[in-house]
C-alpha cells in the first residue's frame, strides 16, 4: 500500500496542510506538488509564499486553505521574507524567547516569481546561506495572470504574450535553467522533481528538509489550463516530460550531480508535445530543432552526473 511506503518520509501521511476547499483549477498539478511536499515538511513548518496561483487560490480573506503558519508579502520577495523569518526564529531561540526546535522555513514561488522577478531576492538568500528551502513550482508561464510567457516557458510554446504568428514561432527563447543557477550558488542541495513521480519527490523534499543551509527544489507542475490539455492528464504529461528528457529528474548534493531516474532511451519530444495546445502550431522543423537541443542537454547532464 502506497500510504505505508509514504511513512518512510512522514509520520502522518494522512495529514493535509493544504486542505480541500482551495480554488485551484481542475486537475492542477501545482497544488498537488505542494500538497505532497508539505506532507513531508510536516507541521513544524512556516511558509512564505510569493504572489501567484498558489497564493490566490488559497487565501481570499476571511478564508485560508493553509493549516501551517503562512505569510504572503509580495510577488518578488518570498526568499527575502523567508530570510527575515529565519533570522527572527534564530535570534528569538538564542534569546530563549521561544523554545528551541527545528522549524522548517519554506519559501514557495512560481516560475515567474523565481526565474524572473524574484531571481535577485532568491540569489541573495541562497548566497547568504539562509537556512531554508526554496520551492519553485514551475508551470512554465504566468498562469495566474492569464498564461503570459516567462523565462521558464519552453521554446516554441504559445502563450498570450508569445503568440505564434506570421513573424513568430511562439516563445522565441530557450527555457532558463534555474536549477543550474541555484547550483552555481554552491548551496548544499538542489533537486528537480515532478509530482508524477511522487516518491522521487518525497525523497528530495526530505533531503531538502534535512539540509542545513539553503536548499532549492524545482518542481515541474503541469498546468492543464495553460498547457491546454484535458484536466485528467496532468500526471501523464509530467511523466512524458521526464521520459522525453525535457525535464530530467536529478539532484545535486554538495556539488555532486546525480540522475535520480533515467528514462533512457528517451521518448521523442513530439510524443510529449502531442495533445498540448500550446505546442500545436509547431512545424516539424521546429520540433526537430527542439529535439536536437533536448538531446544535447541530456548528454551534457549525463556527463555531469556520477554513474
Amino acid at each position: 500500500m502506497r500510504r505505508k511506503s509514504l511513512q518512510l518520509y512522514t509520520d502522518h501521511p494522512e495529514l493535509e496542510f493544504a486542505v480541500p476547499g482551495h480554488r485551484a483549477c481542475q486537475g492542477c498539478a501545482e497544488i498537488l506538488a505542494l500538497r505532497l511536499a508539505l506532507k513531508v515538511f510536516g507541521k513544524d513548518t512556516i511558509l512564505a509564499m510569493a504572489t501567484g496561483c498558489m497564493e490566490i487560490i488559497s487565501t481570499p480573506l476571511p478564508l485560508t486553505d493553509w493549516t501551517l503558519p503562512w505569510i504572503h508579502v509580495a510577488f518578488e520577495n518570498a526568499a527575502a521574507v523567508a530570510s527575515g523569518i529565519e533570522g527572527a526564529l534564530r535570534i528569538l531561540m538564542d534569546k530563549n524567547k521561544i523554545p528551541r526546535k527545528d522549524i522548517n522555513v519554506v519559501a514557495v514561488a512560481g516560475d515567474g516569481g523565481t526565474s524572473d522577478i524574484g531571481l535577485q531576492a532568491l540569489s541573495g538568500a541562497l548566497e547568504r546561506g539562509t537556512n531554508f528551502t526554496y520551492i519553485c513550482l514551475d508551470n512554465e508561464a504566468y498562469m495566474n495572470t492569464g498564461i503570459q510567457r516567462s523565462s521558464s516557458t519552453p521554446y516554441g510554446a504559445m502563450t498570450t504574450t508569445s503568440p505564434p504568428g506570421r513573424k513568430s514561432i511562439g516563445q522565441s527563447t530557450w527555457k532558463k535553467n534555474m536549477p543550474k543557477i541555484a547550483v552555481a550558488h554552491n548551496i548544499p542541495y538542489v533537486a528537480t522533481a515532478c509530482p508524477s513521480y511522487p516518491f522521487d519527490l518525497f525523497s528530495k523534499v526530505k533531503k531538502a528538509k534535512m539540509t542545513k543551509g539553503p536548499s532549492y527544489l524545482h518542481i515541474l507542475s503541469v498546468c492543464p489550463t495553460g498547457w491546454r490539455i484535458p484536466t485528467d492528464l496532468a500526471i501523464r504529461y509530467g511523466k512524458l516530460a521526464v521520459k522525453a528528457g525535457v525535464f530530467p529528474l536529478y539532484e545535486v548534493e554538495n556539488g555532486e550531480w546525480r540522475l535520480t531516474y533515467s528514462p533512457e532511451p528517451l521518448t521523442p519530444v513530439k510524443d510529449y508535445f502531442k495533445g498540448q495546445g500550446r505546442f500545436r502550431h509547431l512545424t516539424d522543423e521546429v520540433v526537430a530543432e527542439i529535439q536536437g537541443r533536448v538531446n544535447k542537454e541530456w548528454e551534457e547532464l549525463k556527463g555531469m552526473c556520477v554513474k
Partner: peptide
C-alpha cells in the same frame, strides 16, 4: 526591496 521584505518576515516572526 529585500531589506524591507526581510524586515516584514522578521517582524511577522515576532
Amino acid at each position: 526591496h529585500s531589506a524591507m521584505s526581510a524586515c516584514c518576515g522578521a517582524s511577522a516572526g515576532g
